[in-house]
Write a protein that binds this DNA or RNA. Structure first.
Length: 432
RNA sequence: GCGGUCGUGGUGAAGUGGUUAACACACUGGUUUGUGGAUCCAGCAUUCGCGGGUUCGAUUCCCGUCGACCGCCCCA
């Protein structure tokens, strides 16, 4: 009979104990740092009504039109696994009336958790992936755009990353974009035949996408295209200038990429991406991105409220940390390993590990009745600092044998001392 | 959704249309009747992702499927 085998779903990952330390480190760093910036954690459902995403992310974005994990539940409601974090946060903002006068503005939150997109897995690309994101709702100030960018930069620097590039652009407001879109289409149309097949399709669907085509021929054409930055309305132009002035004032290096667009339709004015220059990670160079949005809160039935936020891809971040060799040191040592010899010692071995743990030290024992040699091997592999051995002899004398694993010295200690006076025993053991 | 490469034990891997699937690491036991990090010895894949086909015979050939990796689209 063939044994049934199961694989994790395509594009998902099991994070094993040797992997999760770095995730915890990233998350705790985010909590600490974002807290300093006044952001508090929000937790929203992993699935929402399908419409929450389709209304917010837009119907020209692939994320919504082709990549959503959607399903009808047993009550025949059309639901979807979240492909991104902003929509759920905005829905919660409106539903809980967080725009009310009793809440400070901007209302600042961060979140962390899995996102789902049905697409072909590849480098830095998964069907279930994880984001750490933030949203600040209710303030239109360019200073807030810059604070959010500054926080992202601060976060990456705190984690020890270097060689990151901050790219910014402005999509302008609705009027700016309408003006520009027309200018761009007017420019591209005469070149239509020379465009790549992809760009031909993009031209009437979402012409701004042509700007960041990777096709070499497209890039030649795009090089002569008008810039969105020349089509900003006075309001948008002023914000754009302010954002750059503030970034400069805060000594944040950035580059303007007038061809940058983002994958979700709700953005306007300031957008940004943070990417690595590392050539080895080109497939997943962008580790975070975000920008300003208007109209989302209204879309969900709330009052006119601007917002700004970003999302960071945690898998990509982990990759980068590994590539730049800035993974945190993890303490792999064990304080005590209790070697127990013979079934009679089972009880006292358990009492001993419990007593040691009660003092706040790590303790492990053997559960398999293995030979002393095998148990010492385990202790060695666990990088135990001390081994406590309890066998028939010790049992009769109500003692234990304490061995300092770095010096190899060992001596007898009374069990009662072990239970009541561990710190002194450790001191004695370290001198041995 | 499109295209390419690949799939042998816990791990890294070699290999062939034909009775025993190299080697290394790891692991387990012994060498030391109760003591680790060294040496030596022994053990460790009835099986080569899964299903089907060709064949006297397939891990090796063919098809399908699932999965991994990479590129495009898109994106974190």
């Amino acid at each position: 009979m063939a044994k049934a085998t199961f694989n994790r779903p395509k594009g998902t990952a099991d994070f094993l104990p040797q992997d999760t330390a770095i995730w915890q480190h990233i998350e705790s760093t985010a909590r600490l740092l974002f807290g300093d910036y006044g952001f508090k954690e929000i937790r929203t459902p992993i699935f929402e009504s399908y419409d929450v995403f389709s209304r917010s992310a837009g119907d020209t974005s692939d994320v919504v039109t082709k990549e959503m994990y959607d399903f009808n539940d047993k009550g025949d409601r059309h639901m979807a696994l979240r492909p991104e974090g902003t929509a759920g946060v905005v829905r919660a903002y409106v539903e809980n009336k967080l725009y009310g006068p009793e809440f400070d503005k901007p209302y600042k939150v961060y979140y962390t958790g899995p996102m789902f997109r049905y697409e072909r897995p590849q480098a830095g690309r998964f069907r279930q992936f994880h984001q750490i994101g933030v949203e600040a709702l209710g303030a239109d100030s360019a200073a807030l755009d810059v604070e959010v960018i500054a926080m992202a930069v601060d976060f990456f620097q705190t984690l020890g990353l270097s060689n990151l590039k901050v790219a910014i652009n402005s999509l302008g407001d609705a009027q700016s974009r309408a003006n520009y879109r027309q200018a761009l289409v007017d420019y591209l149309t005469p070149h239509f035949d020379a465009l790549s097949a992809d760009s031909k399709a993009r031209l009437d669907k979402n012409p701004l996408r042509v700007l960041d085509s990777k096709d070499a021929q497209d890039q030649v054409i795009v090089a002569g295209a008008p810039s969105i930055l020349d089509h900003l309305t006075p309001d948008s132009a002023q914000r754009w200038a302010q954002v750059q002035a503030l970034l400069t004032a805060l000594n944040i290096d950035y580059v303007v990429d007038a061809n940058m667009v983002r994958g979700l339709d709700y953005y306007n004015d300031t957008i940004f991406e943070i990417m690595t220059e590392d050539k080895n990670l080109k497939g997943a160079a962008t580790i975070g991105g975000g920008g300003r949005y208007a109209g989302l809160v209204e879309e969900f039935g709330g009052p006119e409220t601007p917002g700004v936020g970003f999302g960071i891809g945690v898998e990509r971040l982990v990759n980068l940390l590994a590539a730049q060799n800035v993974l945190p040191e993890v303490d792999t040592t064990l304080d005590f390993y209790v070697v127990n010899i013979g079934a009679d010692t089972d009880v006292v071995a358990s009492q001993t590990v419990q007593a040691i743990r009660a003092f706040g030290y790590g303790a492990e024992r053997d559960y398999l009745a293995r030979s002393p040699k095998a148990q010492f091997k385990s202790a060695d592999r666990a990088h135990a600092k001390f081994v406590v051995t309890i066998g028939q002899q010790e049992l009769e004398n109500k003692t234990a044998n304490l061995k300092n694993m770095t010096t190899g010295e060992q001596f007898a200690v009374k069990l009662t001392d072990l239970y009541t006076d561990l710190p002194n025993i450790i001191e004695a053991g370290e001198e041995a």
